[in-house]
Write a protein that binds this DNA or RNA. Structure first.
Lengths: 365, 365
DNA sequence: TTGTAAGCGTTATCAT
DNA sequence: ATGATAACGCTTACAA
């Protein structure tokens, strides 16, 4: 919908805005100054406990400020200081993983006195652009960014950089854009999952990856291939499938896979939602997990524990990634050092559950 | 943590902020005016296509604006106009339901040219206050609010009203605060769920409700009681349980329930997460659903379809509620009418699944 | 058709 | 210890 992309600066809605009569004006420094018969600059200094203000004056000012219910106007300060103490967060959706990451970002930002503006793009490239522009002209101090699965052109992201706004990428990152990055070690994640399946005796392992333009998709697949190579398992082209990042597509892809003559004996999906899709197809075929077929997902979402059989998955420490991203952002903002070639890489952890445990654990009582 | 509650106005982080040398100044109207040798007011008017500007001048101004990559400074405009085109959204968490509602809010807000600032309080009263204050002094144009389960005192919300900021409550609303409201018909939801259980032949129905201070909790229970009354089932005090709004507590409460001599033959939980908790306890007891015991949840989250047996649940149309809340907010903002005694009430819909279907459907082929 | 000037609320520089 | 003034970037009477 290209129509919605064009934004008329300054007049977004077209609707009239009513200034309610009753709306009592918020008191300002000027009001205090007037009431006290002193100048605004003195008030300003008194309020901020400047050393060169008489104690007496300070007390009077503060008392009146209290009484007036005075609150400084952030807008005015922001305009003057050219910083809004606001972080723009662009994310592709609000699913479990991203929501968890946002919580992490939130926590750190709050602590540091920053407010977070979260814009979710619904995996739409167009909305991502709109959101970026909105936040850009809301004058956020910078961005913490995770691209949508649809995004293949990065002009809007480059625009952030052109405006010299601090920018940190997290989770779904674009390597073509040089910024500080906080992400999972996705190769390792794919590797761990696949290695685990191999160790459980699975020989014909398929992978359901996300769209090809998505970095995390390719990296997890890279880890998958690495594990196969290390164990001298030949790569079967038909077992490497790119499909859309959701349950339905994973279901369909799995159905096709299971209908081939030489069907896989294990499936690794790069998200838990996809694992659920795969599981539905597997159940439909009346195949037994983990005996007939193994299944491993990714993200370690709560749902993996709720289904039967429970689904093995790769824990990605979403909350930690969020926190790290926010911390890194604050560092970028407050340091002169160029951190744009630095990556913070979080190690994933394989969590084994019923869907892929053929060999019982011996060392558990 | 009362420490984090105190905010020093204007200096939140204490950290220094570096103005990068390379940071090329964003061009302003003044720059254009200077370059063209005309006044800023003419530029301002030209940019906004005022009638009283010569076509020629307009063209020149616009061309240069383009070339300069000019973008109006929202902060300055906001300061002048006293409105930020920003909506503050306060929510207790980012779980499925709220995330879905946020999507709805987002969609409407985006369309209307508003940017949304979402602050999630993690069910913490303290964080809710901090967030409210932050947004308040970020000068959002108003609030769309849903209280945390911990919130029992409403001074921070009253503060919003004292500042005459438009305020719409949605989903988890507080009746003590008089505002426009958008919510589910929770009584009806509780009623539908319970009536369904009764119709399936369950006689001893328990309810796991959330905390008592939560409106939705009490309303759903009210519906529950209404259905029982209508069917002449006596209320058993021990079957009405208030527990915390999460899986763990629901699990524990259910365990206790099932260990009583006269255990219930059906459980209605007012959220799906709680239903999951209940289900775990039921499975642990090796009771069969729906035969030995029936289970109905609330929210109709995707997970209800993924577990075995699938869980019956009450669909609450979260996305629609979000959209309606945003629409109502815009109405409040743009109209002089007082809408604060109006409620928009969305009707829920019972979705029957395996966990409570004892009587097979006849009219399905 | 264009320019001047005041103002939004604050801070900072320089006088006094 | 305090005040006057300019500045942040923009809009808008009002004057020209």
């Amino acid at each position: 919908m290209p129509g919605t992309l064009s934004v008329i600066p300054g007049n977004y809605s077209g609707l009239p805005v009513i200034f309610t009569e009753a709306m009592e004006k918020q008191k300002t420094i000027k009001d205090i100054a007037q009431a006290l018969g002193i100048s605004t600059s003195t008030v300003s200094r008194a309020l901020r406990d400047a050393w060169d203000v008489k104690a007496e004056t300070k007390k009077a000012v503060k008392a009146l400020a209290e009484k007036f219910n005075y609150e400084p106007n952030r807008l005015a300060i922001s305009l003057l200081k050219r910083q809004t103490h606001t972080i723009g967060v662009i994310i592709p959706n609000l699913d479990y993983v991203l929501a968890t990451m946002v919580k992490g970002i939130d926590e750190v930002a709050l602590e540091a006195g920053y407010t977070v503006m979260v814009c979710q793009s619904d995996e739409s490239y167009g909305r991502e652009i709109v959101n970026t522009n909105r936040l850009l002209d809301s004058l956020v101090d910078g961005f913490i960014f995770s691209v949508s699965s649809e995004t293949k052109v990065y002009e809007h992201i480059k625009k952030i950089q052109a405006k010299k706004k601090p920018l940190v990428q997290f989770d779904r990152v674009v390597n073509a854009i040089k910024t500080p990055i906080v992400r999972l070690d996705n190769i390792e994640g794919g590797y761990q999952a696949t290695k685990h399946l191999i160790e459980q005796g699975y020989k014909k392992i398929a992978i359901l990856a996300g769209p090809e333009n998505l970095n995390i998709s390719n990296k997890r697949m890279e880890g998958f291939e690495k594990a196969l190579r290390e164990h001298d398992i030949k790569l079967n082209k038909h077992f490497s499938i790119h499909c859309d990042f959701n349950q339905q597509y994973a279901y369909e892809a799995t159905r096709e896979l299971l209908n081939t003559r030489n069907r896989p004996d294990a499936i690794f999906t790069i998200s838990d939602r996809m694992a659920i899709g795969a599981m539905l197809a597997i159940k439909e075929k009346k195949l037994n997990m983990p005996m007939d077929i193994g299944l491993v997902g990714f993200n370690n979402e709560p749902v993996t524990n709720l289904v039967t059989p429970s689904i093995s998955s790769v824990e990605m420490f979403a909350f930690e990634i969020g926190k790290a991203a926010a911390k890194r952002f604050l560092e970028v903002l407050h340091s002169e050092e160029d951190l744009s070639d630095q990556e913070i890489v979080i190690k994933p952890k394989m969590v084994v559950r019923e869907s892929s445990r053929r060999i019982p654990l011996k060392d558990i009582s």
